[in-house]
């Protein structure tokens, strides 16, 4: 590979430069999410307090809950599984923190940042477009909740950041598919809404 899989420190992002043009408008916006450090943590729930100390931020204990701040966020995805996120510049600090508790507390901390791509979905149509492939009841999902679920055939981690603002994380090899799936679902919605375009065909 002449380009190199990693251009500098950054992993290849298949959605780099992708623009949602088809249905762009006030109803729906799709954007490629910013890169950040993502770490998958597995630790016994009884030792969660030590992980919180190492992470330097609250880590929720209930599945589907998320804690988020300016520099850190933590998602509880399973009974003993968490996804930790922070700006790239904080990665070393976090891994060093967990290395310190490693001697007393067995755990696993895996850097999954390079495999993951984020997509931001916002606008009044965002829930409807996501529901084209995702079976979750998004209308009744609490703001600040998260879930690992499925979007059509692709596994995704979905976060509801605001009432009409979702962030979706998926693995890089699915990213292009997920982007096109959402674009297509968004386009259908636009055509239904805009009757003049349908009759004009």
């Amino acid at each position: 590979m002449s380009e190199g899989f990693f251009a500098g420190d950054k992993p290849h992002n298949p959605l780099e430069g992708a623009v949602f043009a088809a249905g762009a408008g006030p109803e729906l916006q799709l954007a490629v999410g910013d890169d950040c450090a993502r770490l998958s943590l597995r630790i016994a729930p009884a030792h969660l307090d030590r992980a919180i100390g190492a992470f330097g931020f609250d880590i929720p204990s209930k599945i589907g809950e998320m804690s988020s701040g300016a520099q850190r966020s933590a998602l509880c995805l399973g009974p003993d599984e968490w996804l930790l996120m922070a700006p790239e510049s904080e990665r070393e600090k976090i891994t060093a923190g967990f290395a310190e508790i490693g001697a007393q507390t067995s755990h696993s901390l895996v850097d999954v940042g390079h495999r993951t791509v984020a997509i931001d979905i916002s606008g009044p149509a965002s829930a409807m477009v996501l529901n084209a492939g995702c079976p979750l009841d998004l209308e009744n999902m609490a703001v600040g909740a998260c879930a690992r679920t499925i979007l059509d055939k692709a596994e995704v981690v979905l976060m509801k950041l605001e009432g009409e603002y979702y962030r979706l994380e998926t693995v890089r090899s699915f990213a292009e598919f997920v982007w096109k799936f959402l674009s297509t679902a968004g386009r259908e919605f636009e055509q239904c809404r805009d009757k003049t375009r349908v009759t004009g065909l």
């Binding site: 599945i63 995805l77 399973g78 009974p79 599984e81 879930a147 690992r148 679920t149 499925i150 596994e155």
Partner: peptide
């Protein structure tokens, strides 16, 4: 029967 929450909590 056993079920696996494969696209959820993974248990």
């Amino acid at each position: 029967e056993r079920w696996y929450h494969i696209h959820g909590c993974g248990r």
